[in-house]
Simulated assay, not measured.
Amino acid sequence: MEAVVAAQQPVIKVAALCGSLRKASFNRGLIRSAMQLVKDSVKGMEIEYVDIAPLPMLNTDLEVNGTYPPVVEAFRQKILQADCYLFASPEYNYSVSGPLKNAIDWASRPPNVWADKAAAIVSAGGGFGGGRAQYHLRQIGVYLDLHFINKPEFFLNAFQPPAKFDSDGNLIDEQSKERLKAVLLALKAFTLRLQGKGYI
């Protein structure tokens, strides 16, 4: 009976975006850890990392007769086809990074492909762990019709002992992995709720 119920549960498709373009970025490490968690212990989810590095800077001159450059259109389709989003957002000058804002703006061009989807934010950095960037991203989400989970919040001070990441930017702290898992479970539940499906 349990196998039948599990088979009926949909697979939530998550598009994951990292605001840092650096390969060993701690925030990118959070996404890698999230991808491993859905393989190991968070069933019913699939995470695809969506690389924002190839996107040109937003320039409406690149829009011709309602069409976008191929790399932009491919990105927009990935956003459109996802059930929800996971943002890993570093904090640059109290805000989100330029590359992430650029990606958000491209996908918000008509028609806005972010609308009416669930989202979660995680961040790693110094001090507040990227918290100010998260709050700014939530403000942006209001205009985009993105619905962010409220709790649990995930801010991680990456420089406070003990070490949270290895030299390649991989998350190694088990307590932080459990916190990240809680975010994924909340995102899954909220996504199903928005889709009108009560089971988690």
Rank of each mutant, 00 (worst) to 15 (best):
V72T: 11
F154G: 03
G141C: 13
K188W: 00
L156K: 07
E46F: 09
K39V: 13
S108M: 13
T60Y: 11
T60I: 11
V96F: 12
S25Q: 01
L187M: 02
Y199D: 06
A7M: 14
G130C: 12
A53V: 02
I140P: 03
P54I: 13
P111C: 03
K181H: 01
N65G: 04
P10F: 08
G129A: 10
K43A: 14
Y143K: 13
I172C: 02
H147I: 10
G66H: 11
Q175D: 12
H147A: 09
R76N: 03
I200G: 00
A186H: 00
E2G: 10
S123I: 05
L144I: 10
N157Q: 03
R132I: 12
A119S: 12
Y199P: 00
L146N: 04
G130I: 14
G126H: 11
K23H: 10
V183A: 02
P70N: 09
V113L: 07
A163T: 05
D61E: 15
I12M: 08
K151A: 14
F128D: 01
Q160T: 13
L156M: 13
E91K: 03
Q195D: 06
D145F: 07
A88W: 06
A120I: 12
K151Q: 15
S123G: 15
T67D: 08
F75G: 00
A88D: 02
L137G: 10
P99R: 06
L185G: 00
D51G: 01
R109E: 05
A107I: 06
I200H: 05
L21Y: 07
K13S: 10
L180P: 00
N27Q: 06
S25I: 11
P70M: 11
N150K: 11
G126Y: 12
E48G: 07
R109H: 06
P69Q: 08
F87P: 00
L55T: 05
L184I: 05
L194F: 05
A24M: 13
N112P: 08
L55E: 09
G130S: 08
P70C: 07
A15T: 07
A74H: 02
F26I: 00
F154P: 04
F87T: 02
V4E: 15
D116S: 11
R22A: 13
E91R: 03
I104Q: 04
I79T: 04
V113I: 08
L185N: 02
G29C: 09
G127P: 09
I104T: 01
E153N: 06
H136Q: 15
R179D: 07
V42H: 07
A133C: 13
G196A: 03
G196T: 03
F159I: 14
F155Q: 13
K117T: 12
L171D: 02
Y143P: 00
G130W: 14
L58Q: 09
S176P: 01
P90V: 04
Y199N: 01
G127N: 15
V142H: 14
A189Q: 06
Q175E: 14
G125W: 11
D51E: 09
R132C: 10
Y68H: 14
N170H: 12
I200S: 07
L100N: 01
P54W: 08
A34V: 10
V38R: 04
A7D: 13
V5D: 08
G19L: 11
I140Q: 04
S108P: 01
V122T: 12
L187I: 01
P152R: 05
E63H: 04
